[in-house]
Every structure is written in C-alpha cells, then in structure tokens.
C-alpha cells in the first residue's frame, strides 16, 4: 500500500479531525443535499414527524384539525432518514476510532451536578423539550438555520442563529456560574 493511501485510511481511525476539515465536509454535503435532493440540511422537523407518527398510532384525536400536521406530515421522508443516518455515521466514526462507549453522564455535567444518571436524564429531557419547542417556534435548528440558511445569507436564519447562541450562552453561564 502506498504511503498516501495508508495515511488516508489512518484518518478514519483518528479520534478527532480538525474542525475545519470536518466542517468543510459538512459544507460539501450541503451542496449535495441541494443538488441531488433539492433539500437543505436540517434536523428538527424530523423530530416532529416522529411525534406525529407516534401520535397517529396511539392517540389520533385532534390531528386532522391541526394545520401543523398538514404542514409537516407524519411520515418518514428524506430528512428523517438524514437524522437516522447521523446516528449511524457517528456510530461508524466512533467505532473506527475505538471511542464508542455507552455512557449516561457527560464529564462536565458530572463535575457540576454529580454522576447520577437519573438526574442527567431528567435535565436532558427538560433541555430537549425546550429545544424541540424552540426549534419549531423559530422554524429551524443549528443545522437548518445555522448552516443551510446562513449559507444562503437568509435574514431569518441569521437572526435566529444570533438569538440561539445568545440564549445558549446566557443559560450556560447561569448553569455553570462562570463569568
């Protein structure tokens, strides 16, 4: 095997890449999404579709009257597969570099709040609820607004991203008490 090929293969087993290389890769993916699928990279509507799919099977009441379920139908489509793919891609990446590990509590969280998994799950659940609610209220998330919208210099996305980070920075400082 030539040295060049070997070095390229070694890249896949590295734990981390330069954020610029990884980010550039995501940029190229955004071209492909526009070109091949006529879609911007985005994630948050898939969570709502999942909610709709679950609701449809357990408690259909009220769905027909609510226009939001017409706007984003409870179905598996391109973006839903994208989010599924993210799980698989991260699994492949972490397995190749040997860092895949089942964990319950992130290190920084443990240092601040202790390593009780139940407390972490409850807080993550609350954070998730805010995030899902806010993402749908604002019409997108860090990938939909942050990458796809900003790449097109969309005003809505630029303003949304500024306030996402403003809210995030203020809350993180409150939680971790550092100034």
């Amino acid at each position: 095997m030539s040295g060049k090929v070997k070095r390229m293969l070694e890249m896949f087993t590295q734990v981390t890449w330069s954020p610029y290389i990884a980010g550039a890769g995501i940029g190229v993916l955004s071209w492909l999404a526009f070109l091949l699928s006529d879609k911007p990279l985005g994630c948050s509507t898939s969570y709502f579709r999942t909610f709709g799919i679950i609701k449809k099977t357990v408690h259909k009441k009220g769905m027909d009257e609510n226009p939001y379920y017409k706007k984003y139908k409870p179905e598996i489509e391109w973006q839903w597969m994208l989010v599924l793919g993210i799980i698989i891609g991260a699994f492949i990446s972490s397995t190749l570099s040997g860092i895949f590990e089942l964990t319950w509590v992130p290190d920084m969280f443990a240092a601040r709040f202790g390593n009780n998994p139940i407390i972490r799950i409850i807080i993550a659940l609350i954070g998730g609820i805010f995030m899902g609610f806010g993402a749908r209220w604002g019409g997108g998330c860090t990938s939909g607004h942050g990458i796809s919208g900003t790449s097109q210099l969309s005003m809505t996305s630029i303003i949304a991203v500024i306030f996402m980070f403003a809210g995030g920075i203020a809350t993180a400082i409150l939680i971790y008490g550092v100034v």
Binding site: W104, G127, I129, F130, A166, I175
Partner: peptide, 28 residues
C-alpha cells in the same frame, strides 16, 4: 424561538443534529 432553543441548547448540551450523533457514539 431562538432564545427558547438557546435555553434548551445549554440545558441539554447538544442540538437536534448533534444529539443524534451523540446517540451514535453511545450517549444514553
């Protein structure tokens, strides 16, 4: 929407895309 998202961003410590990635690397 951005501000509410931001609160969730800091409390969860991940976003809708990266949370899926975190699941893929084993974060339960």
């Amino acid at each position: 929407g951005g501000l509410i998202f931001g609160v969730g961003f800091a409390v969860l410590g991940l976003c809708p895309g990266t949370v899926a990635g975190a699941v893929g690397q084993g974060s339960l």
